[in-house]
Structures are given as structure tokens and as C-alpha cells.
Nucleic acid binder design. Structure first.
Lengths: 221, 221
DNA sequence: CGAGCGATTGAACCAGGTCAAACGGGGTGG
DNA sequence: CCACCCCGTTTGACCTGGTTCAATCGCTCG
């Protein structure tokens, strides 16, 4: 099921070409959009690439998980450009330009829905809402790159946590890219947060689920 | 002429209420949109507020100048949220929510056009283009908060410069807010750039036009 | 002229970066 | 089953770019 859109591992930070399994190549790169495909939800594991900049495909609404968007800076290097979380729409520039502007990679396990959904028209309020959402998200991301290091990381964790306070964090390097800190710094900060009991590893059947945490109720403020 | 939308000076960084001249109050705050007003371009001086978060009004396309958008963080303080430059559209969330999400303040002298213009429909490509633009701008702004301080400031200057290399810079404090540096640091960096001849004060009739500079051709890369 | 504001410059300090070493856990191959 | 490797993580020690505090300057406006 969720192998339909799998990219080969490990995904390089600045992939020059995207390697795809045979079964997924047509679905991702083909100009045609098979109806059976475009209507089907899609699951991604952490680290998997959803699409590459310049390639062709459809737009997606994120149901669960976190997607990282990258694009090439004018020095040619691939840089973190944006974050998309549950509720956000990614890749809708493809409706205008015919191809994706960013690379999209899952930072945590993700679930996606094709967009626009069913009878919802592309024009009008759907787009407008998406635009307003994007502006809000951009402002939030900007805030994650200002102020004290620990506040930035905590801000990101808050952004990613669900209402119950559970979070699946991206890798240290990804958090570092988002906050413009070093992964060593991230590691120290996460350790501190645990020491202060603002963050606790989430145990499932006694064992620590990878990068899963619970945010202390007091840490939401 | 350009007194129509003037706010009282100096504009506080976190204005609780916007003070307006009598003639402008209705134009900015009135629920009704006088046709003669909505079709007329609008000019702003540096430091003037275009609109306040929560107030009612129309959307604008920026023809010239730089607008700063702020919104209240969850600590209540007003924080830099986004930048809008020539070609960008600001305040279009008002079409969806009925009121502005951000405070909008001119950082340099600005010229604005009501949006949408004339026969251009609100829906479809216009919005989509605006969305793509916003995403691109957001990524650029994020880049201005990462890496070495001098590279950030130079990046902002590049963003604000026209093709000929002329720039009108915002105040040191505004540059500091955008790049998340201190204004003393900005001052030192601008001084350095001048020492290295990457930036030269623009003289009009022999006198230095306030905050106007020319970016050296080599500094565009 | 004085008030007020932004810009400039200097000097001391510290948050976070850098470099380096070691750890741990999951996957692979023998 | 174990040995090994690969990677992300952790921790320590040192260094530095940018902050902080403070004093001064220069311009504009009343």
C-alpha cells in the first residue's frame, strides 16, 4: 500500500536525481494522472521523498505527519524552505506552473490526500484559505529562527505536538536545519528539556518509541 | 495627496490603537468602500501604517517600496511576520476573514494599487500566482535568518535592490527585526560593506539621500 | 538653542558554534 | 547467534561571532 510512492533510501540532502521504484515511477513522474491513483490517500515513512522540484504531479493535503520543503538557494545548495503539517496543502504551485517548486520530504510518518478533494472547486475560498494558511505558517517558521535557541526548539516542538501533547520529532539534523542551529545544540537542548521534565520520552510497551515524546502540559504556553 | 492614509507619527512598534487624521479615518476603518477611494493608488511615507490587524479594508498590490507585516506572538508582543515588496499583494486575507491578520507598515516610501484590479477575477490564477509568490517570499525571508550575520544583511539588501542596484534601506532597527540581529550589529555590517565598497551612499545633488545606497555590481551574486 | 531619535563606535561578555571522541541501536552478513 | 558497521546522538572542551552596555555623534524638528 504505502510502497506506491516510496523513494530509494537513504534520501540524500541534495538529490540530483530521484531514484524511484518501478511501480512508483509512473505515478509520480507521469504526466497523466490515473484516476484510481489521484483519489487514493498516500502514506510516507520518515525520510521518504514525496516529490522533487521540477517534477510533475498533483497537489496534496496533509492529513498527518510533517513534510519538509527545500529549494535551491542561489548558490546551488538545497536549503530548508518551509514546513507543512497536518491541514496544509503542498505542491499546489503545480496547478499554476505545471511542476513542483520545492523538494518535499517526510520528516515523520505522513498521510496525504490528493487535493483538491472531490467536488471542492480549485478556485475561490479553498485557495484563499490556503493562502492565508501559508502566510500564517510562514510567520510561525520565521519565529522559529529568532530568539534564544531553547525557545526556538520548544517553539518547533509545540508546533508539531498534537492537542494531547504527543510529538514525533524529526531527526536532530532536520530540527537544526529548521531552526538554524547545530545538531549538537539541538541534542543539548532536548536533553535539558527532559531534565526539566518539559519533555518525556514516550514509551510503548516499555520501550522508547523512536523520537516520540510527550510535552508537559505546562510547556504549551 | 498622500496624506489620505497617513497615521500619526511616530508609529509605535506595538500600537494598541491606530490614530488617524479625520479625513483618513473613514477610508481606512469604514466598513463601506467608497468607489472613488478603492480605485485610487495610494502613497505612503517610510514609517506610516497602512492598516492594523483586526481592522477592515481592502487588499493592495505594491507597486513600489517595502511593507513590513507584524502580528502578535502568543506572548502578546508584536513580532515581525513578513515582508512585502513591489509586485506582492498584501491584505488579501481580508477577502476571506473580513479583517486584516497583520499590521502593515511602510519601511520605505511606498506606492500601492487596490487589488484585485479592475476586471481581474478574484478567483483562479491571480490567487494561485499570489500563493506561489507568498511561498517563494517566505523561503527568501527564512534565508535572511540563517547563516552569518553579514550574509543575512547583504541578502536583505539584494532583495530590496532594484535591477540597477539602487536601494532605499529601512532603519537599522527594522533591518535588525527582519534578520534577527541587533541594530548595533547592523550598523557595523553596513559600515563594513561601505569600507569594502560593496555599498556606497547615494548622493543626490551632492548630499546623501537618507538611507539610499548603490549596491556594487559584484555584490549581486 | 535643546530635545529626541537614530546611527556609530568601543570594550567586555557569553550563547552557541566547532571539533573531537565515544555511545547505541538497528540492520547485515558470516 | 554474534560481529561488525552505519548513522544518528550524546557529551566535553575550547573558541568566536554577535550581543550587551555605554558613551558619543549628527540630524531634524519644535
Amino acid at each position: 500500500m504505502n510502497s506506491r510512492f516510496q523513494a530509494i533510501f537513504p534520501v540524500d540532502r541534495a538529490p540530483k536525481e530521484v531514484l524511484l521504484g518501478d511501480s512508483s515511477k509512473e505515478a509520480l513522474l507521469g504526466g497523466s494522472t490515473p484516476p484510481s491513483c489521484t483519489r487514493t490517500p498516500c502514506d510516507l515513512d520518515a525520510g521518504q521523498q514525496l516529490y522533487a522540484a521540477g517534477s510533475t504531479g498533483q497537489a496534496w493535503r496533509i492529513t498527518a505527519g510533517v513534510i519538509r520543503l527545500d529549494h535551491a538557494g542561489h548558490d546551488g545548495e538545497n536549503r530548508f524552505a518551509s514546513l507543512a503539517i497536518a491541514g496544509d496543502i503542498v505542491g499546489c504551485e503545480t496547478l499554476l506552473f505545471g511542476s513542483y517548486t520545492f523538494d518535499a520530504t517526510a520528516l515523520t510518518p505522513c498521510r496525504l490526500q490528493p487535493w483538491p478533494e472531490g467536488d471542492t472547486a480549485t478556485s475561490g475560498d479553498g485557495l484563499l484559505e490556503s493562502l492565508a494558511q501559508a502566510q500564517k505558517r510562514a510567520a510561525d517558521l520565521l519565529a522559529l529562527r529568532g530568539g534564544q535557541a531553547s525557545a526556538r526548539v520548544l517553539g518547533l516542538i509545540r508546533l508539531l505536538a498534537d492537542r494531547s501533547g504527543q510529538v514525533i520529532l524529526p531527526t536532530g539534523q532536520d530540527i537544526a536545519d529548521i531552526t538554524d542551529l547545530r545538531f549538537e545544540t539541538i541534542s543539548r537542548i532536548i536533553s535539558n528539556l527532559q531534565r526539566e521534565h518539559l519533555l518525556s520520552p514516550l514509551r510503548i510497551a516499555g520501550i522508547h518509541a523512536t523520537r516520540s515524546y510527550r510535552l508537559a502540559p505546562g510547556a504549551f504556553a
